[in-house]
C-alpha cells in the first residue's frame, strides 16, 4: 500500500513499496513518538503474597492440588486442569535440577543486559518449572554451552543481600557442587 502522509511541518512524505513486494524506498516513513508511561501497582493476591513473603525469609513456598497431587512453584490459587482450589502449603528446599536453559544473545528495551541465560528449574519436590537466571554458562558463541553446564545439573538458589518480596530476591541459580 502506498500512502501519502503529512509530516508535522506539513511537508508531504511519500514512501513507495517496490513492485516486487519489498519496501524499496530509502526515505524514512513519517512517524511521531508516543509514550505510554503508566505506573501500575499490580495486585498479588493471597497466594502470591504468601510466596513473596517467603522469599524475604529465604523460603521457597509451594502449594499442591488435592486432586492430582501436583506441587506448584509458583504456587497457584487453583489447579487449572482439575479446576479445584489448591489446598496444602509446603516449603521446598532451595535446590533442584536445571532441566533446560537458553542464552539470550540480544536484549530488549528495559530488559536484562545480554548475553544472559534463562533456565527452567525443577525444585526438589515440585511438579512445575520455575523460570530464572542461571550462572555458569559459557558465553562463547562458538562452543556448545552444554559442555560447561549440562542439562540435568543440580542447582541452588543464590539469595540477594537485600530482599523485598520479589522473584529477584533469588538473585540467580548456580551449580550446587
Amino acid at each position: 500500500m502506498t500512502s501519502p502522509t503529512a509530516s508535522q511541518a506539513g511537508e508531504a512524505i511519500i514512501r513507495r513499496s517496490g513492485s516486487d513486494g519489498v519496501a524499496a524506498s530509502p526515505s524514512r516513513p513519517a512517524t511521531q513518538e508516543v509514550n505510554w508511561n503508566l505506573r501500575y501497582d499490580i495486585h498479588l493476591g493471597a497466594t502470591w503474597s504468601r510466596f513473596m513473603d517467603g522469599l524475604r525469609q529465604r523460603k521457597l513456598l509451594a502449594n499442591s492440588c488435592a486432586s492430582c497431587s501436583r506441587v506448584f512453584v509458583p504456587p497457584q490459587a487453583y489447579c487449572e486442569s482439575c479446576f479445584e482450589p489448591t489446598a496444602e502449603w509446603l516449603e521446598l528446599p532451595a535446590e533442584g535440577t536445571l532441566e533446560v536453559y537458553t542464552v539470550a544473545w540480544h536484549g530488549f528495551t528495559g530488559g536484562p543486559t545480554p548475553p544472559y541465560a534463562i533456565g527452567g528449574i525443577r525444585l526438589d519436590g515440585a511438579s512445575t518449572l520455575l523460570m530464572h537466571h542461571v550462572v555458569g554458562v559459557d558465553f562463547d558463541s562458538e562452543s556448545d554451552p552444554k559442555d560447561a553446564l549440562p542439562f540435568g545439573t543440580r542447582v541452588r538458589a543464590v539469595w540477594a543481600e537485600e530482599r523485598v518480596g520479589h522473584v529477584l530476591d533469588i538473585s540467580h541459580f548456580e551449580p550446587a557442587s
Binding site: I42, W48, P74, P112, Y116, I118, M131, H132, V167
Partner: peptide, 13 residues
C-alpha cells in the same frame, strides 16, 4: 509481571 517478566522471558527465549 511477577515471575517470568522480571527474568527476561520473551518469545525468542
Amino acid at each position: 509481571p511477577h515471575f517470568d517478566r522480571p527474568v527476561g522471558l520473551t518469545a525468542n527465549t
